[in-house]
């Protein structure tokens, strides 16, 4: 659609046909357990509320609680079933790819998105794992560029997350040490030198 005589578009590495790496197989179980806990807590609160309404002085309130009961039960059942089943649908559709220059993460069932964060823009990385994550041997990897567009890849194996973090750190350092590797890249960027000359200063690297 756009004309670019210097860079043949077909030669650009596309992000469409990639071998997406799946998340850890235990991640579905972990999400389901989390959902189950949430269902139990909400159910307990609702039960307490029901008996409070029934046991109160007001008879009208008790009747109201009784009339509400079938709707509440049906709604609660639907809710519980959906959040227990949802991880089985959503998790297989998530995935990540680590390339030499960037890291991609895809997510979404109805609204699907693919986001790419290049290593030479990453400011810092973070690994965190909650109580449930640790129980299942999982960890979450966050990659932060400047501004608001980072990744949070949930549900990696602990060792995978650590290996990824080390790799990302290595790539960030490599990119920071050789800021002039434009010549090594598969496609030449003739404008980089010209603009460097234009601003007559050393290029500010990310460090």
């Amino acid at each position: 659609m756009f004309i670019n005589p210097e860079v043949p578009l077909e030669s650009l590495p596309g992000a469409d046909n990639l071998d997406w790496l799946p998340l850890h197989p235990r991640f579905v179980r972990r999400l389901q357990l989390g959902a189950l806990l949430r269902v139990l807590v909400i159910g307990a609160i609702a039960t307490v509320a029901y008996f409070l309404m029934k046991g109160g002085d007001s008879a009208a309130l008790g009747r109201f609680a009784d009339s509400l009961l079938p709707f509440a039960l049906a709604g609660f059942g639907l809710f519980a079933a959906s959040i227990l089943i949802w991880p089985m649908i959503a998790v297989p559709r998530r995935g990540y790819v680590v390339r030499e220059k960037d890291i991609l993460y895809k997510t979404g069932v109805l609204w699907r998105s693919v986001k790419a964060v290049p290593f030479n823009r990453v400011q810092h990385t973070k690994i965190d794992s909650g109580l449930l994550d640790r129980r299942f041997g999982l960890a979450n990897l966050s990659v932060f560029p400047a501004g608001a567009g980072g990744h949070k890849i949930r549900g990696l194996g602990t060792d995978t997350a650590e290996r990824l973090r080390v790799y990302v750190s290595e790539r960030i350092e490599a990119e920071a040490i050789e800021p002039e590797d434009d010549q090594n890249s598969p496609l030449p960027d003739p404008q980089a030198e010209a603009s460097a000359a234009h601003e007559n200063g050393p290029p500010a690297d990310a460090g």
Binding site: L12, P118, P179, D182, S185, D189, A192, P203, D205
Partner: peptide, 8 residues
Amino acid sequence: YKIETNHR
């Protein structure tokens, strides 16, 4: 491609 070939 533009990001990855340019650090500035």
